[in-house]
Design a protein around this nucleic acid. Structure first.
Lengths: 385, 385
DNA sequence: GGCGTTAGTTAAGCGTCCTTACATATCAGC
DNA sequence: GCTGATATGTAAGGACGCTTAACTAACGCC
């Protein structure tokens, strides 16, 4: 392969590519373009076929064809002629039927109680249900999930597009829960089993990852480079880079709760000391400010914020993030903790990166994970996100 | 859009998607599949059309067609019948003609001297040229680049597939150098100008990013999740996540040299104190171990390694990386610094992540950036990486 | 030599998108 | 009200890409 005179760097071996790129057929292109049309309607709202053609770059002919297909699937509907009067033939507006189908969403991040909801295609929450765990784990916890799903499916008035689940633990790309200590799940093929049991498409992701998706699609995240820090009993993060969820080599990306930041810190449940979780998780924070007056509590929260900022500066700097979003108890995170973390990050990073960085609470409140679960389904079933 | 009874999370707004996905035509699919064939030959080596069909998932008919196209382009060649004897008609082996075209590669990371080389398609270095800068910056430095390229193009014995450049500074996806203080470049559309001046395809990336690509494709990087830490006069990093270069919101991903890790540290050229670069850059390291005996020097390097490990643990943990590769002076980085950093990362991260993490020197030595520049061209022109 | 197996090609068909042409419906100006 | 310009949407025909089915070529095995 190499000419004799060539010098070759030492150890110069060629390995297989990582992204196992697969073949693309004309039919896949069709699917992609169909999603493109839906995406346009989803994000920009109702418009004419000609508008869609301009937006997607496809011809009017092709767009008409795709729209006809979507009309047949009852995913979009004609909304009559465009009200404003212009030169030329009046345009027929087509819009996404946000009630065309419903999405069943689960948020399993609460230890005590599973949270379920029915959402429409626009992300609006239509119904809610709670399912207390009462300490059940493993197979029993799975049974709770199935029962909750069945209940929600029966409550949904429309055909169900799919089921989305945000769960704590490590989840692989196929929707199998590799490890979720709190729920007692190990290598549970959750998406596959649920899909079998419910006869519906099921998409599963880590809760913090789902939160990142939700914040991006429904929380109006500004652009590429988003990290959601989910603070609850533990601490997790979800990373959305270049519009894609980053999963990591062991599907453990964002699992920063047990990264040690202070070798002389407090003992952690994981057996080491000074994990980020010993500083930032909700119980730890409540314990530290319990009994303090307002001012002292704020000072304490600010000092935690500064330490968080010190840790985040490295991640923000390495990834050149645009936004860091906090999800969790607003009373703990939303005030001086956030402010201190923000200014600490700015102090520690290069100005271009730091100056434009947003550090804020989630705009979706406690529904981030539900919204993210919906995005999993929208993205998986319709190619919309 | 929302039914009246629906409850909607506060601030629930729908924004436009970030990945501005564009239309896909059948012709694009063809291009993709053509790359798939090349990719197979590049990574797995010569094989028969039938083998390629099995590997790509395409039919033998389609593969034959694609191979015919590649034969006409003289990118691949028939290597005769397969030597081993099996049942059935003997297979005709086709292989990539690594000498079919040459690639002109530039490494601008050295302050004093630009480094250029001609590589073949297998990444072997065929010719080298140096171009001393003698303090030239701005337009004069650009002239050196052009002259170096012209020289290398004239030296290359084959048609030149393209020009790849790894340069310090912030580079956008179009190959424009937004800021490169050392070279005195600001908003220089390097790829575009070079492409005009040379009448060749030109691909430009940050040097550390190029190094990451080079290490991945030619250094046998293990899989998804690679960070290359380029230690020289300054400090930069390149991140390869899920097979894609991560550029960041300001194209500044990996610019961690000026992230502050120690507010009470040494003053940095950037005006702040305790930047990572004040600890890890080559001049700083040399200054610290200068005059020390072997043991003391190793202890010093180990302490730097521990601090590096503390910083890296967060990044490795957040991204769930598989490999961190050091590029730079082996005498400084390759010994106790590396060992200390490695063990510190393991100590600080969750075992699943830390246990499988590799932290090693680059396998390509000083040629990483050149190799990466070649990958830019291979990937951009042939879809191979 | 017959049979099964594998490699590669040829022919026909289907799907996808494009270009071109046309029908439809409005506005602006006379 | 009529005409010309402009814009939307559809119809027909063609180019391209992949597939299936059928065929030829060449080998090992019995």
């Amino acid at each position: 392969m190499t000419t004799a005179s060539a010098t070759r760097p030492p150890g110069h071996t060629v390995r297989r590519p990582l992204r196992p790129t697969t073949k693309v057929l004309p039919g896949h292109a069709r699917q992609h373009n169909r999603s493109l049309v839906l995406q346009g309607l989803f994000h920009t709202g109702p418009m004419s076929r000609a508008d869609l053609a301009r937006e997607t770059g496809l011809t009017r002919v092709t767009v008409s064809d795709l729209v006809a297909e979507l009309l047949a699937d009852e995913l979009v509907e004609e909304l009559g002629l465009r009200p404003e009067s212009r030169v030329g033939k009046p345009a027929t507006i087509v819009g996404l039927r946000s009630g065309a189908a419903h999405i069943v969403c689960l948020d399993l991040s609460d230890e005590a109680c599973m949270l379920g909801a029915v959402l429409d295609l626009s992300g609006a929450v239509l119904h809610r249900r709670l399912a207390p765990l009462n300490g059940r784990t493993g197979e029993a916890a799975y049974d709770v999930v199935v029962a909750l799903c069945r209940e929600l499916v029966s409550v949904a008035g429309r055909p169900v597009l799919g089921v989305g689940v945000g769960t704590p633990g490590v989840v692989d790309a196929a929707g199998a829960v590799l490890r979720a200590p709190n729920l007692g799940w190990t290598a549970l093929p959750l998406a596959q089993r649920l899909s079998n049991d419910l006869a519906l498409p099921v998409h599963v992701a880590n809760d913090a990852n789902a939160a990142a998706l939700g914040e991006h699609t429904f929380g109006g995240a500004a652009g590429s480079g988003l990290m959601v820090l989910a603070v609850g009993k533990g601490l997790g993060a979800g990373l959305l880079l270049d519009g894609d969820l980053h999963r990591g080599h062991h599907n453990a990306a964002g699992e920063i709760g047990h990264v040690m930041v202070d070798p002389r810190g407090v003992a952690c449940a994981c057996g080491r000391r000074g994990c980020l979780e010993t500083i930032l998780a909700a119980p730890a924070l409540r314990a530290r400010i319990g009994g303090l007056d307002r001012r002292a509590a704020n000072a304490t929260l600010a000092s935690v914020g500064r330490r968080l900022g010190g840790a985040l500066a490295l991640i923000v700097g390495a990834l050149d993030l645009r936004e860091v979003v906090l999800s969790g108890p607003v009373d703990l995170l939303g005030g001086s903790l956030r402010d201190a973390a923000h200014s600490e990050i700015r102090k520690r990073s290069m100005s271009i990166v730091g100056d434009e960085l947003d550090l804020r609470m989630t705009r979706l409140g406690a529904d981030v994970v539900l919204a993210g679960a919906a995005v999993l389904v929208l993205s998986g079933q319709l190619g919309v996100s």
